Simulated assay, not measured.
Amino acid sequence: MADAPALELTDVTRRFGDRTVVDQLSFRVARGAVFGFLGPNGAGKTTTLRMILGLVAPTSGRLTVLGAADGRRVRDRIGFLPEERGLHPRMTPLQAAAFLGALKGVPARAARQKARSLLEGLGLGASLNTQIRRLSKGMAQQVALVCTLVHDPELLILDEPFSGLDPGHQQALEILIRERAAAGATVVFSTHVMSHAERLCDQVVLLAKGRKVFDGTVPQARSQAPGRLILEGDLTPEAISALPGVAEVAASDLPEGRRLEVWLAPGMEPHQTLSAAFRAGLPVRRFESREPGLHEAFLLLTGARAALPEVEGA
Rank of each mutant, 00 (worst) to 15 (best):
residue 57 A to Q: 13
residue 261 E to V: 12
residue 287 F to G: 02
residue 28 R to N: 04
residue 301 L to A: 12
residue 273 T to S: 11
residue 224 Q to I: 07
residue 269 E to G: 14
residue 74 V to T: 03
residue 312 E to K: 15
residue 165 L to N: 01
residue 197 A to L: 00
residue 188 V to T: 05
residue 270 P to R: 11
residue 272 Q to E: 10
residue 62 R to K: 03
residue 53 L to K: 12
residue 230 I to T: 13
residue 106 V to S: 12
residue 222 R to V: 14
residue 41 N to Q: 14
residue 195 S to V: 13
residue 110 A to L: 09
residue 97 A to W: 12
residue 273 T to Q: 13
residue 187 V to Q: 01
residue 32 G to L: 03
residue 72 R to Q: 05
residue 84 E to N: 13
residue 270 P to E: 10
residue 19 R to Q: 15
residue 195 S to C: 05
residue 70 D to P: 00
residue 232 E to A: 11
residue 213 V to L: 13
residue 28 R to T: 14
residue 142 Q to V: 09
residue 30 A to D: 06
residue 184 G to C: 11
residue 210 G to H: 05
residue 237 P to N: 01
residue 140 A to P: 04
residue 20 T to E: 15
residue 176 L to P: 01
residue 152 D to N: 06
residue 188 V to W: 00
residue 100 L to P: 00
residue 312 E to S: 13
residue 151 H to G: 07
residue 162 F to W: 03
residue 178 R to G: 04
residue 207 L to G: 02
residue 153 P to I: 00
residue 277 A to H: 07
residue 269 E to F: 02
residue 144 A to Q: 04
residue 7 L to V: 14
residue 198 E to G: 11
residue 229 L to R: 15
residue 166 D to Y: 01
residue 164 G to M: 10
residue 179 E to D: 14
residue 257 G to D: 02
residue 300 L to I: 07
residue 183 A to W: 09
residue 283 P to Q: 01
residue 13 T to D: 06
residue 93 P to K: 12
residue 283 P to E: 04
residue 199 R to N: 14
residue 47 T to Q: 03
residue 191 T to M: 05
residue 169 H to T: 05
residue 56 V to I: 14
residue 33 A to T: 09
residue 160 E to I: 11
residue 83 E to T: 04
residue 105 G to S: 05
residue 73 R to P: 07
residue 182 A to N: 14
residue 45 K to I: 03
residue 12 V to R: 03
residue 115 A to E: 07
residue 105 G to R: 08
residue 165 L to Q: 02
residue 196 H to D: 07
residue 58 P to F: 00
